[in-house]
Structures are given as C-alpha cells and as structure tokens.
C-alpha cells in the first residue's frame, strides 16, 4: 500500500505544484515540467505495461490542466516512455547524471512532438515561435530540477536499503 501511496502523493504534489505554486513565482519559459521528469524516471526504471499506462495517464492529467488539446501530452509522454524503455537496457540507468541528461533530451523531444502535432492538427497558428523559444530554457530547468529530484529519490532508496 505504502509502495503505491508514496509515489501517488509525490505525483499529485507535482501536479498541484505545477499548476498553482510554480506559475505564480516562476516566469514563463522557466517553469519546470515535473510530470515529464516522472515519465523519464518511469521510462528508465519502471516495468513496461504499468509504466506505459502511468505515463499515458500522467500525460492526460497534464492535458487536463494545460492547453486545449486532450491527448497531446498523453501521446508525447507515452512516446517518450516507449523510446526510453527501448534504450534503457543499453544505458546505465542508475546513473543520476544520465537520467538528468535524459530529462533534457526528453523535454526537447516532447516539445518537438507537440510542435508537429499542433502544426498538423490544430488551428494555433504561430505557436512554433513561442514553443521553440521556450524549449531550451525549459529543458535546462527540467534537467536542473531532475538532478535534485533524482538525488533525493536515490538518497531515500539508499536509506531504505540500509
């Protein structure tokens, strides 16, 4: 129970933080995408079926609080998860720095996926300008936050094992 409860609370807190607190204090391109960090973690560490389901649900949760297009983040989070799952066994996924780099790359990849999907299927003209400008700052911020989060998670796991 506690195994599910703790991550559940962490994810819920991340979502609440992302919608309420962070936008109030952080300027636009520098708001971190906490749920994407969770997806990267899932991609590198979780089991395929459960991880994929959770990644997709996280995307839908993100879509419910962001933008107009339900399924946009659902799709891009799922794709990110699947790509990471496929390459995770070739990587040293326990390395915190590698996971941080993966978050940066995943942010850029997700942003580009949004760009393609929005350009093809939405009427939001000119969105590419805001999106491209925000990608690198958001990737950097996500990587920074990820390094802290993964550090905390690793420390907690080490303590549990000890």
């Amino acid at each position: 129970m506690s195994k599910l409860l703790k991550p559940g609370i962490a994810i819920l807190s991340a979502l609440i933080l992302q919608v309420t607190l962070l936008p109030a204090y952080i300027a636009d391109p520098f708001k971190p995408n906490l749920l994407l960090i969770v997806v990267v973690w899932l991609g590198l560490r979780a089991t395929p079926v459960r991880g994929a389901l959770l990644a997709y649900l996280l995307g839908l949760a993100q879509d419910s609080c962001s933008g107009l297009y339900l399924g946009l983040n659902g799709f891009s989070f799922l794709m990110t998860f699947l790509v990471l799952q496929n390459i995770a066994h070739r990587l040293y996924a326990d390395n915190r720095y590698l996971m941080t780099l993966a978050v940066f790359i995943a942010t850029i990849a997700c942003g580009l996926a949004h760009l393609v999907l929005l350009a093809l299927f939405s009427a939001a003209e000119g969105i590419y300008a805001s999106l491209l400008v925000s990608l690198i700052p958001q990737g950097a911020v996500n990587a920074l936050v990820a390094s802290v989060v993964f550090g905390i998670v690793d420390a907690a796991q080490t303590e549990e094992v000890a």
């Binding site: 109030a24 609080c65 969105i127 805001s130 999106l131």
Partner: peptide
C-alpha cells in the same frame, strides 16, 4: 483564479 497553465506555450487559467 486558482491555477495557471504549466506549459509556456499555452495560455490558460483555472
């Protein structure tokens, strides 16, 4: 207003 959009490229409020 109880929330804002998390993504920098969308502008919505809750």
């Amino acid at each position: 207003v109880i929330g804002e959009d998390g993504a920098p490229w969308f502008k919505t409020l809750v």
